[in-house]
Design a protein around this nucleic acid. Structure first.
Length: 812
RNA sequence: GCCGAGAUGGCGGAACAGGCAGACGCGCGGGACUUAAAAUCCCGUUCUAGAAAUAGAGUGGGGGUUCGAUUCCCCCUCUCGGCACCA
């Protein structure tokens, strides 16, 4: 009989069956099975449909989910839609249709695409951030933050993108440009909602120790939080009562200080200006007004040459008692430390550059790694490392770390400064002046101030509007709807105005993993029993682009909810991995303009779901960037077609029992595929199937072995495995409901195998050896072996090293 | 500059935990089938020399530890990602 592989004949049949009979719904609170919560970053349902990257990530994780189910876990593998945001809003404006309708259509398209790939998502738990029944609870969490004093509104300079007409968080601004559109942002003073994430900075750093994230992710998070211990030290300004407070993270170098620099915008200059001579004051005033004119971008891009101006004033370093000239220079930023810096040119290259330009002396106080004390006279010699301190009076002989501690004690004891922890992390600007986001549930009342909307009135739904365009005034389009804006104050029942800002689209994604645990709950955001059962997320899979902001924000919300007693765990995600990016042929980004975009629909149409999925896994390592290759997917197609025919015809009912070597090979395959998928080595898991086929496709198998073969194929080729299962093995059952075969560890190692023999480090031959060989028995076998004995003739064997199952090494 | 990841055939990539480097796929060469082509199948394919058996070299470069190093240690070069006048 001859068979032909035609996936169209059966793939959609099985998909309908899988998803209508809810095969993949996780059971809440099931206690007789271990749970496994596998989370993938939910997609933004954009108009053009699912990206090939989603296809790859969800396919790979689907193999994990299917394997874990067969290993006896109660697996939750949910999906949802992160659907608020600008692309949809912009598209809505363009085509003059409500974003609600567009979102609905996009979601339907994504859902269809995911199902056409046979991804075993739990469709019972779908969430949608734009659904009022979902954002009701996003608003509710916001109110909890508000009650706790973690959400405040204040007038502040924000990054304003004139193109998108939206305020952006610091995190969304890269090189002074809006990350999304590339437009240069401006500073505007606008009243903004701010979440005080900085109050959690310490815990966001410390509690990374509790989770199993890759080092690179932890490093990135810690780098972003930027926790540092600062020493703020008071210096007296000579001939006056004024005191300046300089800050440093390296107080061990205090005795090397030779000048002080103040940032040009610093308020203290108002007090210092009257102390200056007229000519110097004029210079300083001129310098200040010039640097304020420059944008931050200009200032930071002028990295070549330092500029600055001498104030004519001096201060006394209260640690070293040196007299230090005071300068104003724009390389010092008001936002860092106290905005006043003590210059130590020997141990800081920026300070050295400045000192050189202004003819300031250089004084070395830290020894090099080998105890060097040579003078520092060029930029290359500047020593920024740590070491033993010298020429430093009471710090002499201490190491940097000890010296810092000593200075800390000293300034506290003399009451001339503080040791404080500062963070690079800034508070989270939380409001957007846009339509397509969660309304912030606050009413402004002239009498009562900002009043939260009572919980029972949530959700505060987005009103339908005529126009979605943001306004140039910086107000949200919601501000134009008078009947919505004008309302009653929930507290005094007097007239009130609704908050018209909406939340950023980070909001809905900051807690979606909790909603999956209890998606239909109308009483609570999540029932504590459900979250206790499912949380923490066992594995969170996602992209590089979300490992700073989204991860930080969602960890922050989680900790707030933990503090309020709603959750049991301090951290939401037990482990995390980062997938690579799918690039177009030649390693370039897939983009519309290059015309090299490949989507799942055309792949499923042309190759079928199983080939597409297997190719996605086979393309390359999980965490590496992979390039699209039409030739390679053709190769995978060739394999899958052959493999299908082989599986269908390999079980010969005349064969009572497979040969022993086949049993061993299948056992190894079970072990290898389980291990590879567990370790996210999907490319080698597929390769193992190919290799097995190459080596054994001519053999005949008994029923037990073909059953095992179908089961181990199922995570990677779910449709084929199911189809052949139905045709040959089980009439009613699904291959995906089977238990993963037990691995017989004994058959993994052969009794007697060919072992390579190294003589003086080179492989010269092989011997059949068991694992219990003695030196004597090996020596005998060596000498009776034709090829090996020629290498050993007339030579004295000094030593024989035998590593069982691995190698024999002979030293002459 | 700092932090992180990496460099293996013509290409994408394998190699448990220091033990036969190059699995698997692509490409390429040869052959079978065919009137022919496509598809399919079989054989070969790290480089150098050799008809072959075989020998030598070989995992970015240089050193080290080891019977043995792609793997561990030190130094260097380059590539990618993140941060950045953060004092």
């Amino acid at each position: 009989m001859s068979y032909k592989y035609n996936p169209k004949e059966f793939e959609s049949k099985w998909q309908e069956k899988w998803f209508s009979e809810m095969n993949y719904s996780a059971k809440d609170l099931l206690l007789d099975m271990p749970k496994y919560y596998l989370l993938v970053e939910f997609p933004y349902p954009s108009g053009p449909g699912m990206h090939i990257g989603h296809t790859r990530n969800y396919s790979m994780m689907d193999a994990v989910a299917r394997l874990k189910r067969m290993k006896g876990f109660n697996v939750m593998y949910p999906i949802g839609w992160d659907a608020f945001g600008l692309p949809t809003e912009n598209y809505a404006i363009k085509v003059k249709r409500p974003p609600q309708d567009i979102t609905k259509e996009n979601i339907e398209n994504f859902r269809r695409q995911l199902k056409s790939l046979g991804i075993s998502f739990d469709w019972d738990r779908e969430v949608n951030t734009t659904d009022p029944s979902y954002y009701k609870w996003t608003q509710w969490i916001f109110l909890k933050l508000f009650e706790k004093g973690l959400a405040t509104k204040s007038e502040m300079p924000i990054n304003w993108c004139p193109k998108c007409k939206v305020g952006c968080a610091n995190e969304e601004v890269v090189d002074s440009k809006h990350e999304r559109c590339g437009e240069t942002v401006e500073k505007r003073n606008i009243s903004q909602w701010v979440l005080k994430i900085t109050e959690y900075a310490d815990r966001l750093d410390d509690e990374l120790d509790l989770v199993n994230f890759p080092d690179s992710v932890k490093a990135l998070q810690r780098n972003w939080i930027g926790r540092k211990v600062w020493y703020d030290i008071e210096y007296k300004v000579e001939n006056s009562e004024e005191i300046i407070k300089v800050s440093t993270t390296r107080p061990d170098t205090q005795f090397g200080s030779t000048f002080v620099v103040i940032a040009p915008e610093h308020e203290i200059l108002k007090k210092l200006l009257p102390l200056m001579n007229e000519s110097e004051r004029k210079n300083v005033e001129e310098y200040i007004s010039e640097s304020i004119k420059k944008s931050e971008l200009e200032r930071l891009s002028e990295t070549k040459e330092k500029t600055g101006v001498f104030t004519g004033l001096y201060c006394i370093n209260s640690i070293s008692n040196s007299r230090l000239p005071i300068y104003v220079a724009d390389f010092v930023l008001t936002t860092v430390g106290t905005g006043m810096v003590v210059g130590v040119p020997a141990h800081d290259s920026r300070d050295f550059e400045f000192a050189q330009k202004f003819g300031i002396s250089v004084k070395r106080v830290i020894e090099g790694e080998k105890g060097e004390r040579a003078e520092i006279s060029s930029l290359e010699q500047v020593y920024e490392g740590e070491g033993r301190v010298f020429n430093s009076d009471f710090l002499d002989g201490l190491r940097s770390e000890e010296a810092r501690e000593k200075v800390g004690e000293y300034i506290k004891q003399k009451n001339i400064g503080d040791v404080i922890t500062r963070y690079h992390l800034r508070d989270w600007i939380f409001s957007r002046q846009h339509y397509w986001g969660e309304p912030i549930p606050i009413v402004h009342c002239e009498k009562c101030g900002m009043v939260p909307i009572p919980e029972e009135e949530l959700p505060l739904e987005l009103p339908k509007v005529e126009k979605y365009e943001p306004t140039d005034t910086g107000e949200s389009p919601l501000a134009n709807i008078e009947e919505w804006v004008n309302t009653k104050c929930p507290k005094c029942k007097g007239p009130g105005k609704r908050e018209t800002d909406t939340m950023p689209n980070w909001a809905g994604s900051s807690w979606y993993y909790l909603r999956y645990c209890d998606p239909k709950n109308v009483e609570e955001f999540v029932n504590r029993k459900n979250s206790d059962y499912w949380m923490p997320v066992d594995h969170y899979e996602g992209g590089q682009e979300h490992i700073t902001l989204h991860l930080l924000y969602s960890r922050f919300w989680h900790k707030v909810l933990f503090d309020l007693g709603y959750l049991r765990d301090k951290e939401p995600y037990a482990s995390r991995s980062i997938h690579g990016v799918v690039l177009g042929e030649g390693g370039v980004k897939m983009s519309k303009s290059l015309g090299n975009v490949i989507g799942p629909d055309e792949l499923v149409e042309r190759y079928g779901a199983d080939v597409t999925r297997a190719y996605m896994m086979f393309m390359g390592p999980y965490d590496g960037n992979v390039e699209w290759s039409t030739r390679t997917i053709e190769g995978v197609k060739r394999f899958v077609s052959k493999y299908f025919v082989f599986l269908l015809s390999a079980w010969d009912s005349k064969v009572e029992k497979s040969e022993e070597q086949i049993k061993v090979a299948i056992n190894r395959l079970v072990y290898k595929i389980e291990k590879d998928i567990t370790d996210f080595k999907f490319n080698t898991a597929v390769a193992a199937l190919m290799q097995f086929y190459n080596e054994h496709s001519k053999e005949k198998f008994d029923k037990e072995d073909i059953t095992k073969l179908l089961i181990v194929s199922a995570p990677m080729l779910p449709h084929i495995a199911e189809e052949i299962w139905a045709l040959t093995i089980g009439l009613k059952s699904s291959v995906h409901d089977q238990l993963w075969p037990e691995v017989d560890k004994n058959t993994l190692k052969d009794e007697e195998i060919e072992i390579p023999v190294q003589i003086q480090g080179k492989v010269r031959g092989r011997l059949l050896l068991s694992s219990q060989e003695t030196e004597e028995s090996i020596r005998e076998k060596l000498l009776s072996d034709n090829t090996l004995s020629t290498w050993l003739s007339d030579k004295n064997i000094k030593k024989i090293i035998y590593v069982p199952n691995k190698i024999v090494s002979i030293i002459l």
